[in-house]
Each structure stands twice: as C-alpha cells, then as structure tokens.
C-alpha cells in the first residue's frame, strides 16, 4: 500500500475525537498538576510559585514515608495472596468439577461489586457489636476484636479485603490461558511418571509464566492505587494506621485542600507507577499492535 498524505489525514481524523478527549481530560490536567506542584495553590487562593518546596517538604515528611511503607505492606499482602490463590484456582478449575460454571460465576462475583458495597459488606461482617465474624471469634474463645478500629489489625484487615476483592481479577486473567493448554502435553507427562508437582513445575509453570507475570504487574499497579474500600472503611485510621499513599494524597488534597502539595505527591506516585507499569504497557502494546501478533 502506498503511503499518502491524504490517507494519513484520514487516519488521524478517525482517531482525533479520542485523542482530543484524552488530551482534555487526562494529559492537560496532568500538566496543570505539574505546574501546580510548584505552587502553594489551595482553594480560593491565587497560586504562588514556590519552586521545589512542595517536593522537598513531601520527601522530607515522615507521614509520606510512613504512608509509602504502609502501601508496600498493603500491596505485598494483597498481591501475593491474589496471585498465589488465583493461580491455584485457575489450575484446579480446569479439572472435572461438579457445577464448574456456577463455581466460576461465584468466584468472580466480587468483581461485579462497587467499592461501596465491598466496604458495606465487610464493615458489617467485621463490626464490633453486630458482626458475625466477632460472633465466631467469641465462640472460639478469642473474644471480640475491633478489626478495623485497632491500630495493630486495621492495615492487615483492609489488605485482606483488597485480596478478597482483587483475586477474581487474577483468575479472570489466568483461567482462559490455562484452559487453552493442549491436553496432549500432560498425557506425555503422565506416561513419564511425573508427579503432579513436577507436572506443574515443568509443564504448566513455563507456559503460564508470561500471563502470570502480567497478572501480577497489573495487580501491583491497581492495588497501589487502591482507595475506595480503605477510605470508606477506615478513613486511613485509627489515627493513621491504615493511611496508604492514596489515602494520604486524598486527605492532603480534599480534606486539607492543599492542592499544590497534593499535586507534588500525585506526581511522585505517577513516577513510581511509571517504573513498574511501563514494562507491562510496552508488552501489552507489542502483543496487541505488533504486526506479527495480528495473525
């Protein structure tokens, strides 16, 4: 095909509305945010240029680093569990299981839920007075535990809820991949007398690894930005025990209305995500847009 300027114009005209909207809603605001991050802008006040002061203050603040550490723990607990259980279930579900369709539908049900509903459900289940979980722990002789209002447990509990809500996503990404493996390779494995673990280690794992890595990276990116459930359940508390970076950013921006400082945290978070996500994005782009992948 001959490349012609009119064809190029035609192609760009077709993608123009999409890019125009993305520029207005995403790109432009990000540039505004970058500019704001060098000012002391706050609601009802004219922004004043203060140079890199916001970044100096953010990077020097103990609460920022504490929030970053909590985010690391939160993402660590949630993603490790999601990935391990998601992979396990993807491998188990391809076996002959009664009512498999229904089992899968139930397993991925949490995907259909808003953060508000997830938070409602767990707020009730874990409630100190009326929650069924405390009824059970009480029966077991452990007494009632203030899961979400106790500094020692709040962060771990919200991370476990994040796991509950996020695991189906891993399953949705891995199950179709696992289901597509040809059965013949496993038959060969059986003849050679391989144990189930060996079959997983030498047959399943090498084939599912690329999809597994992508799933893990996606979950890291998504969990890193988790906000709704934590905000609704604990508001980052008690005190700041479950204040992960997203909650920290929200508080500074929309509770204290310090937009300049919030913008600096936003950009730091953006740079941090960029490191992990650019790898995944380049890979996804190659898979779906590279000429050879089109076949």
């Amino acid at each position: 095909m001959i490349k012609s300027p009119s064809k190029a114009l035609h192609a760009w005209a077709l993608v123009a509305p999409l890019y125009a909207l993305l520029a207005a809603i995403v790109a432009l605001p990000e540039i505004v945010a970058l500019a704001l991050s060098f000012t002391d802008y706050s609601i009802g006040r004219d922004p004043r240029w203060i140079g890199e002061l916001n970044y100096v203050r953010t990077l020097g603040s103990a609460s920022f680093w504490a929030a970053a550490l909590r985010t690391l723990i939160f993402v660590g607990i949630a993603v490790v569990l999601e990935a391990a259980i998601g992979l396990l279930l993807a491998c188990l579900l391809i076996r002959r299981i009664p009512m498999r369709g229904l089992a899968i539908a139930c397993l991925i049900a949490p995907i259909a839920m808003s953060h508000a509903v997830t938070a409602t459900i767990w707020a009730y289940l874990l409630d100190f007075n009326v929650g069924p979980v405390n009824y059970v722990t009480n029966l077991m002789g452990l007494g009632r535990i203030p899961w979400l209002t106790e500094a020692g447990t709040a962060l771990i509990v919200v991370a476990l809820i994040e796991f509950w809500a996020g695991m189906p996503h891993v399953l949705v990404m891995l199950y179709p991949v696992r289901a597509a493996f040809p059965r013949e390779i496993y038959e060969a494995g059986e003849i050679d007398g391989a144990t189930p673990f060996q079959r997983f280690r030498y047959l399943t794992w090498p084939m599912i690894r690329p999809a597994f890595l992508i799933a893990v990276v996606f979950r890291i990116i998504i969990t890193f930005r988790a906000f709704g459930v934590v905000w609704i359940l604990t508001k980052g508390g008690p005190v700041d025990a479950s204040e992960i970076l997203s909650v920290h950013l929200y508080k500074i921006g929309f509770v204290y209305w310090e937009f300049g400082r919030a913008a600096s945290i936003a950009w730091l978070m953006l740079l941090l995500t960029a490191v992990v996500s650019s790898w995944a994005m380049v890979r996804l782009y190659r898979e779906s847009f590279a000429p050879k992948a089109a076949a």
Partner: peptide, 22 residues
C-alpha cells in the same frame, strides 16, 4: 496507540487532583 496505554497507567487519584479545580 502507545500513548493510550501510557494514559491508562495514571492512577485515577492523580488525575482527580488537577481535574477538580479545572
């Protein structure tokens, strides 16, 4: 199209901070 994927990577909160005043 690479830019589409790049934009998808921005955390939503990071977008809301500047969107709100705009």
């Amino acid at each position: 199209a690479m830019s589409l994927f790049a934009m998808k990577m921005l955390p939503p909160l990071v977008i809301t901070v500047p969107l709100f005043p705009i």
